[in-house]
Nucleic acid binder design. Structure first.
Length: 640
RNA sequence: GCUGGCGUAGCUCAACUGGUAGAGCAGCUGAUUUGUAAUCAGCAGGUCGGGGGUUCGAAUCCCUCCGCCAGCUCCA
């Protein structure tokens, strides 16, 4: 009897001769005992597998340790199984759904009579620690479909999933400590690998994400290899809570949403409004510099318009109900595009006129389902930074380049990093797939030429054309939806958007729907969280607060405030209460500059400048110098 | 929209298993004239989310509607 030898190629190019059927764990051990101990999982021919997986043929293998991000996914997936193990032990009747690893952790869905309480979660967490301490090995088994049916005969959700497997598909099950799950793995070698974890929340979730199916109870948790990483993650959650725009919006008196006004309708208070105004003025000036034309359109339109655009057909449930005027039905506008198309159509356009760029801070109304509303980030009335660009097919690439330049400029001003994503043709796309794909390649070419990294969202494009999304990354690393630049071949068809070519015949124009900032509501809401309420000076509602030390310096302080205002700075004087009280107040309001005026400053014509968040580190300077410094901050739109 | 939790003064929160609402901050008034994150005192402020019910009696128990929060679903 001879065991066949196989050749294992390691990442550094070394080749190991191993017995056929050796496991990835054996490979790790062959490399060294340290690695064997640190190993979490392995990548065999590009596929992540468990360490107990036998290897039958020559293969390229790399061993994953805690240092590889992929190993975290494995750990978290195993954590989900350990959670299910704990729940099954404590609530034997609980049905099990899915339990995957997700971006920041994992979840598991259970079918139970009573939803879980926070106390239940604590109980589960304790039990999980016990399961982990027991160091149960995860064992993997290949089973036939019939065998699997037998194994999961008491788990209707698993049986349902099972029926979706093809007859010849490999079905694997994982077991640890008597808990069995239908699962393709991989897993960590044993439950003992799970040490640093936390259950975070519970909530309902539809079985298979389908709102027509029963609701399961989902438990979210997270896990890390190192305690420090777990702590850091939990701190980040705390930090996110502190930056919540709904909390800061109230504290800083920026906006409110009130029941009497209506769900999802934002009231911009003066301080919020000045922030928005500042951004809008900056944006409009920038658009004019970039050869956009500003347009305005009404917020109500005849339903006929939305019949042409097709919105009534595909978007009606997101629209407010119609208002009827003697048989003419009107709708609050859900999008600006049809209006802009009607402006385009008022003239015969020449190929020489294109590109034509119509921009509008257009207010739209959408009847969002009540459960989706969220502060300023998801509302029912919002003002889009919207534009529709009409181009010839040969101008697409150039125009996308300009858009990416503009997005880069704007987002940099606000201190955002960003990622780009190309979304390609979905299944249900309209029109000629070849046209769609050619356009996609054009966009891909633009991205490639720029030499910037981007993701590809396969099948994520709109039904009418591909798009490039700009996803911004905020100060604490969270991603937000930012700009989106969508190509549209469908609307030009519906609206008959043409231009006269050099051949003196009409040609179909191509439309680019684009937004750079999204909506003012979402953008400002995002900025509140990005800056944690501490806006850069140029956007701050109040830029300088002048604080006289005592009443006798009030006049001198007022003179300084007047000079600041004269220079276009938003400044005020606050003289009541003690200096300490007023400094505390100004710090809580996150005013970027405090100017203290007392006996010395009044005498020398100086001011003691205290910067937001800088504590007692202050600088005494001449008043002209101070004013010039603040003006410079504003003019350069300096961050911080 | 769905599942669960929650809704008390402008804000943040108390009020044991039903006995008739209280504190801090903010506001107002007065005193204090202040040198770097809360000076002191007084006053005022609530039909306990709305409606209905049970009860001698409801912030508390039940029903219903509205809203908020988490998640699902959906999106600028």
């Amino acid at each position: 009897m001879s065991i066949e030898q196989i050749r294992i190629t390691l990442p550094n190019g070394d080749v190991l001769e191993m017995d056929g059927g050796s496991t990835a764990g054996d490979v790790a051990a062959a490399i060294g005992p340290g690695l064997a101990k640190a190993a979490v999982a392995a990548v065999v021919n590009g596929e992540t597998v468990g360490l107990a997986e036998p290897i039958e043929a020559d293969a390229a293998i790399s061993i994953l340790t805690e240092k590889n991000p992929e190993s975290l996914v494995v750990l978290r997936h195993s954590a989900a199984h350990i959670l299910a193990t704990a729940v099954r032990e404590l609530r034997p009747g609980a049905g099990i759904g899915f339990g995957p690893a997700i971006d920041d952790g994992f979840y598991y869905d259970f079918e139970v009579d009573k939803p879980f309480t926070p106390e239940d979660l604590e109980e589960f967490e304790k039990k999980m620690a016990e399961v982990a301490a027991a160091d149960q090995p995860f064992t993997r088994r290949r089973v036939s479909k019939d065998e699997a049916r037998e194994l999961f005969s008491d788990d209707p959700l698993k049986l349902e999933r099972l029926e979706e497997f093809d007859a010849d598909e490999v079905i694997t099950v994982y077991e640890n400590g008597g808990f069995l799950d239908l699962c393709k793995g991989p897993h960590v070698p044993s439950t003992g690998k799970l040490v640093h974890f936390k259950l975070l929340s519970g909530a309902g979730a539809y079985w298979r994400g389908d709102e027509k199916r029963q609701m399961l109870q989902r438990i979210y948790g997270t896990a890390f290899h190192k305690k420090s990483a777990l702590d850091e993650h939990l701190n980040r959650l705390e930090e996110a809570k502190k930056r919540d725009h709904r909390v800061l919006g109230k504290e800083l008196d920026l906006y409110s949403i009130q029941e009497e006004v209506g769900q999802g309708f934002v009231l911009w208070h003066p301080k919020g409004a000045i922030i928005r105004h500042t951004i809008e003025e900056f944006l409009k000036a920038t658009l004019l510099e970039h050869e956009y034309d500003l347009v305005y359109s009404p917020q109500i339109a005849s339903e006929e318009l939305y019949k042409i655009s097709g919105h009534l057909e595909v978007f009606e449930e997101d629209m407010f109900p119609a208002m009827d005027d003697n048989g003419t039905r009107f709708r609050m506008k859900p999008m600006n595009c049809p209006h802009h198309f009607m402006i385009y159509k008022t003239q015969t356009r020449s190929y020489r006129d294109l590109p034509i760029r119509f921009a509008e801070l257009g207010t739209c109304y959408r009847y969002e389902r009540s459960g989706t509303l969220h502060g300023m980030l998801r509302v029912r009335c919002f003002t889009q930074d919207d534009a529709h660009i009409f181009v010839r097919p040969d101008q697409i690439a150039d125009e996308y380049d300009r858009l990416l330049d503009l997005a880069d400029y704007l987002l940099t001003v606000f201190g955002y990093e960003y990622h780009l994503a190309l979304a390609t043709r979905p299944e249900k796309a309209l029109g000629d797939p070849a046209v769609y794909d050619a356009a996609t390649e054009t966009l891909r070419g633009v991205l490639d030429r720029r030499g910037v990294g981007y993701e590809v969202d396969e099948g994520g494009g709109a039904f009418y054309g591909p798009k490039i999304d700009v996803n911004v990354v905020d100060a604490i690393g969270r991603e937000w939806q930012g700009g989106t630049f969508q190509l549209d071949f469908e609307m030009p068809e519906r609206f008959g958007l043409v231009y006269i070519g050099s051949d003196n015949t009409p040609h179909k124009a191509v439309v680019i729907h684009r937004t750079l900032l999204g909506s003012m509501e979402r953008f400002v809401g995002g900025l509140i969280e990005h800056y944690g309420g501490a806006f850069p000076t140029w956007m701050s509602p109040e830029q300088v607060r002048v604080l006289p030390v005592g009443e006798q310096w009030h006049e001198s302080a007022s003179a300084l405030a007047a000079d600041l205002k004269g220079a276009g700075i938003r400044a005020s004087v606050e003289g009541r209460e003690t200096l300490g009280y007023r400094i505390r107040e100004a710090e809580s309001l996150k005013i970027p500059y405090m100017g203290v005026v007392g006996e010395r400053e009044a005498a020398d014509g100086t001011v003691a400048v205290r910067r937001r968040g800088a504590g007692k580190k202050q600088e005494v300077m001449g008043r002209e110098q101070f004013i010039a410094a603040v003006v410079e901050q504003v003019e350069t739109k300096a961050l911080g």
